[in-house]
C-alpha cells in the first residue's frame, strides 16, 4: 500500500509537535478540528464564511495592513507608505494607516522586534508564536503589540479567553533570550496590547503577572499532555454546533452545508497556516 497516503491521526510519539496559539485555540474549540487541521493536515477548501468575497477582502486587507506596519517599523520612508496606502483600492486601509501613523511615535524603545518568531520547549513538544511587534525598554520591560484588523472591536472578556492572550506573554517570558543574548524577563515585566486598526483609541492592555504565568504554564503543559494521551477516536467534535458554521470541515463532520454569515461572527479571520517556514517561490528541481 502507498504509505504516502497514510496520515497520522494522533500526535506522533516519536516526533515533537510545534504548538501555536491557533492550534491550541482550535483544540479548545473542537478536538476534531485540531485533529483534521494539524494531525491529518487535511486541506478542505470549503468556504469559511459568507459572503466569500467579503471574507477574502477582509483577510487580504489585514495582510496589507500588517505589511505596511512592518515596513514602517523597519524604516521605509513614511511618505512612500502614505502613497501606497492612499492608492489602495480598499477604503478602510487608508484610514487604518492614518490611525497607525499616529500610534507610531509611541512605539519607541531600546529595541524593536518586528514580525518575530519565538519558540520554547513545552513538555516533549514546542510552543511557537509570531509577534507583530515587541518593544523592549530599559528596566527591562517588554510590550507585545498585536494588530487587530477586524471591523468590530471584541470585548475584553472574549480576548482574555483566547489562547493568544495566554500563549504570547508566557512564551515571551520563556524565550526572552531569543530576543537578546542573556535577556531574562519576569512576568510582571511583560505587557500585551491589542491595538485595533479600526478603533485606534480603544486598545486593550493586559498586564502579565507571576500568578498568571504559573497558571499558564500549568494549563499549557496540561493541555499538551492531554493531547498526547488521546487516541485517534478521542478527538471529538464540539458540542457547540454554532461554531461549525465557521469551520471549513463542517461537511466532513456532517454538520451542515453553507458557511455562516460574516456579520454574525465574533471572529477576526486570519490567513490559515499562521506560522510556516517561508520557503516562498523556489525554482524546484524538475528532473
Amino acid at each position: 500500500m502507498d504509505t504516502a497516503k497514510r496520515r497520522l491521526d494522533t500526535l506522533d510519539p516519536k516526533q515533537a509537535f510545534a504548538f501555536s496559539q491557533a492550534a491550541l485555540q482550535d483544540y479548545q474549540e473542537c478536538r476534531r478540528r485540531f485533529q483534521l487541521r494539524y494531525l491529518l493536515q487535511a486541506a478542505w477548501p470549503a468556504p469559511q464564511a459568507e459572503p466569500v468575497r467579503e471574507h477574502e477582502r477582509q483577510i487580504r486587507r489585514g495582510e496589507r495592513f500588517h505589511r505596511l506596519a512592518q515596513q514602517a517599523l523597519l524604516g521605509v520612508p513614511l511618505d512612500r507608505l502614505d502613497a501606497v496606502a492612499a492608492a489602495d483600492s480598499d477604503e478602510h486601509l487608508a484610514q487604518w494607516w492614518q490611525n497607525f501613523t499616529r500610534l507610531l511615535p509611541e512605539l519607541q524603545g531600546e529595541q524593536r522586534y518586528v514580525e518575530t518568531l519565538l519558540s520554547a520547549p513545552l513538555g516533549r513538544h514546542r510552543l511557537v508564536a509570531k509577534y507583530d511587534l515587541l518593544v523592549l525598554s530599559p528596566g527591562p520591560k517588554l510590550v507585545i503589540y498585536d494588530w487587530k484588523t477586524g471591523l468590530k472591536r471584541p470585548r475584553r472578556a472574549w480576548l482574555e479567553k483566547r489562547s493568544q492572550t495566554r500563549v504570547y506573554p508566557y512564551l515571551a517570558v520563556k524565550a526572552a533570550a531569543g530576543l537578546r543574548s542573556g535577556l531574562s524577563l519576569l512576568p510582571q515585566q511583560v505587557e500585551m496590547i491589542y491595538w485595533f486598526a479600526a478603533h485606534p483609541g480603544q486598545p486593550e492592555k493586559i498586564l502579565y503577572t507571576p500568578e498568571q504565568y504559573e497558571k499558564d504554564e500549568r494549563d499549557l503543559l496540561g493541555l499538551v499532555h492531554e493531547i498526547d494521551s488521546l487516541s485517534s477516536n478521542q478527538f471529538d467534535m464540539t458540542i457547540e454546533e454554532r461554531a461549525c458554521q465557521y469551520c471549513v470541515y463542517r461537511s466532513y463532520c456532517a454538520r451542515g452545508a453553507a458557511a455562516g454569515s460574516l456579520t454574525e461572527s465574533d471572529e477576526e479571520f486570519e490567513p490559515e497556516g499562521e506560522i510556516t517556514i517561508d520557503f516562498d517561490q523556489i525554482a524546484e528541481i524538475s528532473f
Binding site: 519558540s119 520547549p121 520563556k174 523556489i282
Partner: peptide
C-alpha cells in the same frame, strides 16, 4: 527535524531560506 525537538533551546526561530525565498521576502 532537529529544531522541532524539545532539546533545541528556547528562543527565536532560525530562518531557513533559499536565496529565492530571501529575495522574494
Amino acid at each position: 527535524a532537529a529544531l522541532r525537538t524539545p532539546g533545541a533551546a528556547a528562543g527565536g526561530q532560525v530562518d531557513i531560506l533559499t536565496l529565492g525565498g530571501l529575495a522574494r521576502r
